[in-house]
Design a protein around this nucleic acid. Sequence first.
DNA 1: CGGCCATTTCA
DNA 2: GAAATGGCC
Length: 475
Amino acid sequence: MTDAPTLLWLRQDLRLADNPALHAAGAGRVLPVFVLDDAAAGRWATGAAARWWLHHSLARLGAALAERGAPLLLLRGDARRVIPALAARTGAAAVHAGRHHAPWARARDAAVAGALQAEGRRLELHEGALLVEPERLRNGQGRPYAIYAPFARAVMALGEPAPPLPAPRRLNGIKPPEAGLKLDELGLLPRRAWAAAFPDFWTPGEAGAQARLRGFLEDAAGDYDRGRDIPGEDGTSRLSPHLHWGELSPRQVWHAAAPHSGPQGGRGTFLREILWREFSHHLLWHRPELPEQPLRRTYASFPYQPDRALLRAWQRGRTGYPIVDAGMRQLWRHGWMHNRVRMIAASLLVKQLLQPWWDGAAWFWDTLVDADLANNSANWQWVAGCGTDATPYFRIFNPVLQGRKFDSGGAYVRAFVPELARLPDRWLHEPWSAPAPVLREAGVVLGRDYPAPAVAPESGRARALAALRGMKAAE
DNA sequence: CGGCCATTTCA
DNA sequence: GAAATGGCC
């Protein structure tokens, strides 16, 4: 069976370059396959915005693979059944796939490996989604790192990751035993016009990822230390959705960014952001309860006050806090929110509005094109104060001060909250404080054109600290 | 990857 | 009296 074909099972590694699974499978006759598998993912099935991305990414990947002689087979169903069945029909000796570290994916891969093995075939999982595999990194006590700073130091101390693999020029594809589904038949695109503006901001697919990486390193990376915190500027890399779907590997990013500078300066800061992604993924690997349970167990008794109306006001960008509302509306329109504003918006929901962090996480999961179980869960726990390396609960963002500091010219708020556009900078981040003549001049009636604050500015912080004391008393 | 407030420092 | 500093929540 030396000429037995192999399956290349693509999941979250939708690229040709630096793809170890493709590299291994592409040595012989190969059938690339993608399976839309919502069953195994359960409640963490890909959210609506990420599905939009996936649709377009698969379109580009399918074209690139077909060009090289191995068209992509699209299927839907439970991969625990679909992959072994396809392997049997093609007579494949091996299935190659990139490692996928989410808890549900680990369980699924174990089941697939078992089913294949029972028929004398094998599942080969390849590295490449992370810079360092989670099993490989331990602290002085032999335990996984729980704090970011020593984690990042340890990763940096490992030195350069291996150089990226080239993309194959030609592939020896086999004829699939079935026609599979057309891309449209996967039903990934939203029915409503919600995502209509996404194409103005994103180019899913490997070429778009490379273009974005090069553009960022040429334009914004040098000023990243400052620019990354200004939501009104295009100062971040915006690589997160590309990284989530594996259109780009972290070691490709590393090797593209590192040559330009040492550990200091904009590129060093940028690489440390890439390490936050790495840290979140390691955390999820070692603490699979991360999406569901607070890592600090005392927070299980935190007295959240679930309120559907408050949650909805936050989701729709109608909290009455301009910087937060701008962020929530950016999220709805672009499928993405600037990182600085994510922190402010999340902090307001959890601390001032006393809404459960998992409700916020669920909304982000459905609306972010970069929704990623590790990053999303870890960062929400960080904001909520219940993560291992979390911001202390009493560290409560003041949305007015944050707005003044990071959107001082008001470009961001004016872009997404047009009803406040004519307010002068002085009052833009706290319209409730503006004198009546100023509001009149700007054509704003609070409560009609723009909501009054969902929680009174002077009481939000006190409420949050009172709730924290409530939790400690309940221990 | 804070904010608040008391206190100090310097114009 | 504004701006910087430091302890505490």
